[in-house]
């Protein structure tokens, strides 16, 4: 099939950038979206032109590296799917597709469609873990955890840290991402010791990074490729109030 692409091109972080139009032909419906871009790039490289820079790594929906906003939707039109798993079956011959980077002050564009998500790392560093040194653990079955709690923890922990929640949010809020990590440990016994400190410092770091504020519109939940529930944000809100009230 033949497609018209409008792609955000920006030479580096300082460049102003703008949309550039490309035509691609002979796209197979079996290709993934990123393979379609690979073909575009091969053509550009053969002509000695700078290919479109975009992030991707595992290309199987788990590393969280890929990050394109397609026609206004982070990760494109399929629900619960990252861009790398989006296939060209989703499009028809003659379609026009707009491709933009994640847009947020806390995710500055580095080049073209690549953004810097180190703000997410810094939030995790602020407390997204259980402080246990290697070698300190007791036998794993000494700590029975009911299946529902384990399942709920997994649901939260499945977050791939791609940032689609921020990209989708009208306010570029990182609440869903942060609440997923806070929520994972909030439902597990291992997370209780540092529960208060964790939510307070992770939220503090989130605010410091300049993300927007949640307005409960749940665009994040709808865009999340791993279908993280907005209920984790509700849990984090409550956790945050309780922790604030009981921490000096």
């Amino acid at each position: 099939m033949k497609l018209t692409l409008h792609i955000w091109r920006q030479k580096d972080a300082q460049d102003k950038g703008g949309m550039v139009r490309y035509e691609v032909d002979g796209v197979s419906e079996h290709s993934s979206f990123l393979e379609m871009l690979d073909v575009l790039n091969d053509g550009l490289i053969e002509k000695g032109q700078d290919p479109v820079a975009f992030d991707s790594d595992c290309r199987e929906g788990i590393c969280g590296m890929c990050s394109l906003v397609i026609n206004g939707r982070p990760h494109g039109p399929w629900t619960a799917t990252t861009v790398c798993q989006l296939h060209m079956r989703a499009y028809r011959d003659g379609d026009t597709i707009y491709i933009e980077p994640w847009r947020a002050k806390s995710f500055p564009v580095l080049k073209d469609l690549i953004v810097d998500r180190s703000s997410f790392d810094r939030i995790q560093q602020a407390g997204g873990y259980v402080s246990v040194n290697t070698g300190n653990a007791v036998d794993a079955n000494c700590l029975p955890i009911g299946k529902p709690a384990a399942d709920q923890a997994f649901d939260a922990a499945h977050c791939i840290g791609c940032g689609a929640c921020v990209a989708a949010c009208k306010n570029a809020s990182a609440m869903l991402f942060v609440s997923a990590k806070v929520g994972q440990f909030a439902v597990l016994p291992q997370g209780q010791t540092e529960r208060k400190e964790r939510v307070l410092s992770m939220v503090e770091q989130m605010d410091k990074e300049g993300f927007g504020n949640c307005t409960n519109q749940y665009e994040c939940e709808a865009a999340c490729p791993k279908e993280i529930s907005a209920d984790f944000m509700r849990m984090m809100n409550l956790d945050y109030f309780k922790s604030s009230a009981t921490t000096s």
Binding site: A137, A150, A153, A157
Partner: peptide, 13 residues
Amino acid sequence: IDQCVAQGVPFAR
């Protein structure tokens, strides 16, 4: 396994 459980890795139960 012990270490990972202590870290809060949500293994199947």
